[in-house]
Each structure stands twice: as structure tokens, then as C-alpha cells.
Design a protein around this nucleic acid. Structure first.
Lengths: 181, 181
DNA sequence: CATATAAAATAACAAGTGTTACAAAACATG
DNA sequence: CATGTTTTGTAACACTTGTTATTTTATATG
């Protein structure tokens, strides 16, 4: 008794998310999303109340994307926090726009810690690892190493830092060792 | 034989720079600049070829502003690089929008190092200080401490990091000591 | 003071934005 | 197959953007 829906909310979200990934959030417009979805702007406003709701959805997808990225990243390091660091820097290199949206946002939605902890119980797990490795102040260690990791990732995003995975690995392990002594 | 100019290039630049400082570069529009300068948009386009030229000028002012800020920042620390770090983090706290424009730019103009080195001979001076303090790899030390400082400042800008000057001072000195051992 | 001339204001243009009114099309059910 | 309902497309509205044509205004010089 009615027409079949051909452009779903998911399809629109997929398209918008890919655009955010490639060009950043600020370049998402109704007409450009419609063009890439091969439709008019109408299906967008049927599925979403407005562009804000769409960009909110894109943001949530970005959070989930990072969390999957982190979950699947290989855990090769024995030094505490270094797996987290390797994944974070690699994400900044491979997904510059998403990194900016999530971790250097102009309109803050979730804090850095909310995104991180939501992915797995990363922070707690890593802090316990550090504690059992004989660190006397694992919380303080985490703060320091995390600031360092964030700096490396931000510089990677902007192109001010350009090290290979190997170099990054060595750097992170060195720095973490320095902090633990 | 002609009318006196009442809105100078400097006045427009002043207004646009203040707007960038308060609201960020992306909120600078011809009409909003004109409104704050109490004039029409006409004087803007007489002094500048277009809005791009104006924003380029604003960027240059931001560079100069940071360099002045750094030059005037008190040098209380004895540990190498920590004066630079204190000034950088304070700048990120007090001038969030300018910090973003300069150090987390979407359209990169000058690299981080160009801005820094241009201000004074900061980097070279600090590296020499570290070398004469007995550091065997002052370049490597600088890279590490600088990544850390940048991370602290970026987190300060986004509000993910909120330490007092005193806490920052202690943190930077600790970290630098860790890196030197 | 009158006037030429540069500066500023007004107002418009074209392009692009979010959003919505309305018309066309497709399909599940009778 | 006809029909009614929903989805989609078309086209428009109101707004904002950079930019420019045109008019108005002020002032240095005659």
C-alpha cells in the first residue's frame, strides 16, 4: 500500500561518514551527501530531523570506527601503554580527518577519556598492567605517557611529525622506560 | 583633492585578528568584520584583494603575536626546554583559538618549527643549553620533550587537560629529568 | 566657496546553505 | 488491475557567503 524505501538511513550515514573521513565534518552538506548517494536531499530529511542530527550520527560512527580500529590493532608491545600509543599514532596517520573530529574537536562532544575508555577497558587494563609490572605510580605514569602519545599523534595529523612505525615503536618504548625509572 | 581615508588596512586587520582570537578563523566574514569596524564591507575590499588575503594577514599577525608572547614569557626554569614548554602550554590555555590556528591548522601554512624558530633562536639555544648541561643527545631530547609539550598544550586547548601553572611546571621538569637520565 | 576625486555606503549579484511545499512515481494491498 | 499511501524528485524559500556596480559623501585643492 506504499512505496518501498530505496535510500535508507544507513545508506545516508555511510555516505556522510565516508565524506567526513575524507574531507572532514565541515564539508558535509545536504546537497553533497545527496549527490554521493545518488538521490535528492529529500531522503536525508526524511531520515534525520536536520543536518545536526546527521552530523551527530557521523560523530557516533567515528567513535565506533576508532574503537574498532583500536580493538583490532595488533598488540606487539610489552611495555605498558605502548600498544595504545602505537594504535593512536597509526590512527592519526591513516585517518587524519577522523582523528581531528574525535581528538581535536572544535565542538567537544565526548572527552578524550570517554572515547578511550569506551573502546575497551583500555585505560584501566593498562594501568593494572603497569602496576603489576612494578610501577609505583601507575596513574601518574599513564598521564605522562598519554600526554606524550597525544602529542605524537597530533603532530602526525598535521604532518609536523613523520616517523615510521618502527621508529615510533622505539620512541614510545624508550619514553615509557624513561618514565618508569 | 580627495576624501580622507577613515578605515585603514591596519584597523581592519586589528578587528579581524581580534575576531580570530575570540572565535577562530572560520568565523571571519566580510560583513562581520565590517560590523565590528563600524563600516561597510567596502573598505575591506579596498585594502585587501579578497577575504583570503585578509585571513593570510590575520595568520601572520597570529604568528607575530605568539612570538611576542613567547619572547615576553618569564624564564624561571633551569631545566632545558621547560621555559618553552611553560610558555607554549600557557599560550594554549589563554589563546585557544590562536593556538589552533597556528599549531593544529586545517590548512597548514608554516610548520610548527618555522613558527618556533622564527620567534627567537629558541630551539637552537635550548639545544645548546641542554648540551652544555651534559646531555649526550640534545637533539633527541628536544624531540621527546617537544612532543610531550605539544601533547600537553593540545590537551589544554581542548580542555582535556587542566593543570595549574605550578603543576605544569613540576610535570615538565619531572619529564625532562626522566628524559635526561 | 566650488569642485574634482577618492573613500565609504548602499544595494545588488551569483553561489551555496538548510529546509520545506508540492508534484511525480512506485509499490503493497484491495 | 486500480488505488491509496509513502517515498522520492523538483523547485522554491529564506538566509549567508564573497564580491562588485553604483551612488553618496567628505575633503584637499583650485
Amino acid at each position: 500500500m506504499a512505496r518501498k524505501e530505496s535510500i535508507t538511513k544507513q545508506m545516508i550515514l555511510d555516505v556522510a561518514f565516508m565524506m567526513a573521513r575524507e574531507e572532514g565534518m565541515q564539508n558535509i552538506t545536504a546537497r553533497r551527501v545527496a549527490e554521493r548517494a545518488n538521490c535528492s536531499t529529500q531522503p536525508i530529511f526524511r531520515s534525520f530531523q536536520g543536518m545536526d542530527e546527521l552530523t551527530d550520527g557521523v560523530y557516533d560512527r567515528a567513535v565506533a570506527f576508532f574503537q574498532d580500529y583500536y580493538r583490532l590493532y595488533p598488540r606487539l608491545e610489552k611495555t605498558p601503554f605502548c600498544n595504545l600509543g602505537m594504535a593512536y599514532v597509526a590512527f592519526a596517520r591513516e585517518e587524519k580527518e577522523l582523528f581531528r573530529i574525535l581528538f581535536v574537536p572544535e565542538k567537544p562532544r565526548k572527552s578524550l577519556y570517554e572515547i578511550l575508555n569506551g573502546s575497551t577497558e583500555n585505560v584501566k587494563t593498562e594501568i593494572q598492567r603497569a602496576a603489576s609490572a612494578g610501577c609505583q605510580d601507575p596513574g601518574g605514569l599513564f598521564m605522562k605517557i598519554w600526554i606524550f602519545i597525544h602529542g605524537a599523534a597530533c603532530m602526525t595529523m598535521t604532518g609536523d611529525y613523520d616517523l615510521s612505525d618502527q621508529e615510533t615503536r622505539k620512541l614510545l618504548n624508550d619514553v615509557c622506560q624513561s618514565f618508569m625509572n
